[in-house]
Simulated assay, not measured.
Amino acid sequence: MMNVQQLEDRDLILQYLDGNDKAFEVLLTRHKQKIYTSIYLFVKDHELADDIFQDVFIKIIDTLRKGKYNHEGKFLQWALRISYNMCVDHFRRSKRRSKVSASETFDIFDVLESPDENMEDAMIKSQAYGKIKALVDQLPPEQKEVVILRHYADMSFKEIAALTSVSINTALGRMRYALINMRKLIGDKEVVFQ
């Protein structure tokens, strides 16, 4: 019998549909950090992020059980699309627009894995991440969104375009303007990265 941990996402889904609940547990464990983080980055509230995260996985389970999941796409991108749509629905219901802004309790760069490094390198990297985060936080919401989805969620511009309901050219343009704006901010504030 093959170790469930080593199965691809598609195989885990098939195992789950055949009654193996452990397969879904492995799938959830494998992707929960990225999915939860993507939700939190949009809602900026841990309790709300927890609620939406649970709703996302209820929707995923319902979709899988109804046989409506399409294996052509990647599971993580599909799950991220569901989470994004649920965040948008939440903001529509509350008549607010999703904003990705600075947070004192959460830092996207804290969840990024890095190889062992000495203390000096860690401090320099931490300062650089802080400066980059501050620059990203100053971008307009649409540009911030593309930067986070591209560089944190590892989504392609095609996936970002589909997720945010814009054309690929618009997604590319937003990234381009985000980079231009960040360069301008670096020049204006004379930010130095060591």
Rank of each mutant, 00 (worst) to 15 (best):
N169T: 12
Q5T: 07
R174Q: 08
R96F: 00
E145D: 13
S126L: 09
N181Y: 09
D110Q: 14
K125N: 08
A122G: 07
Q15E: 15
I35M: 07
I168Q: 09
R150C: 01
H90S: 01
K59W: 05
G130I: 07
T37L: 10
R10A: 02
M86Y: 09
D89I: 03
K32Y: 09
Q143I: 06
E120K: 14
M2N: 13
Q194Y: 14
V191E: 05
M182Y: 04
V111R: 11
K189S: 10
S94K: 14
F91L: 03
D50H: 08
S156Q: 04
F42N: 12
V43K: 05
L185Y: 11
H31E: 06
V4F: 03
E117G: 03
Y36K: 07
F57R: 07
A128E: 15
Y16E: 08
L76G: 01
D154M: 08
T170I: 11
E145I: 02
M155Y: 03
L135C: 10
I13F: 04
Q5L: 06
L172D: 04
Y129H: 15
R30Q: 11
S98K: 09
P141Q: 14
L163M: 15
A134D: 15
T63R: 06
I60Q: 02
L7F: 09
T37F: 08
K189M: 12
E47M: 07
D9G: 03
K144C: 09
M86T: 02
Q77G: 11
P141L: 07
L149Q: 12
L41Q: 12
R96H: 11
K99W: 05
K32H: 12
D50V: 01
A102T: 12
Q77Y: 12
A171C: 07
D55T: 07
S38F: 08
W78H: 04
I124C: 01
F106W: 09
I58G: 00
D89P: 00
G187C: 06
L163S: 07
Y177L: 11
K44P: 00
D21T: 15
Q143N: 15
L149P: 03
A122D: 11
M182Q: 03
D11Q: 13
N118V: 02
L80P: 05
H90D: 04
V166C: 13
F53N: 06
S114N: 12
V136R: 03
V147A: 02
A134P: 02
R176E: 12
R81I: 00
N70Y: 07
G130E: 13
K59I: 06
E145F: 08
E117F: 00
K189G: 14
G67D: 06
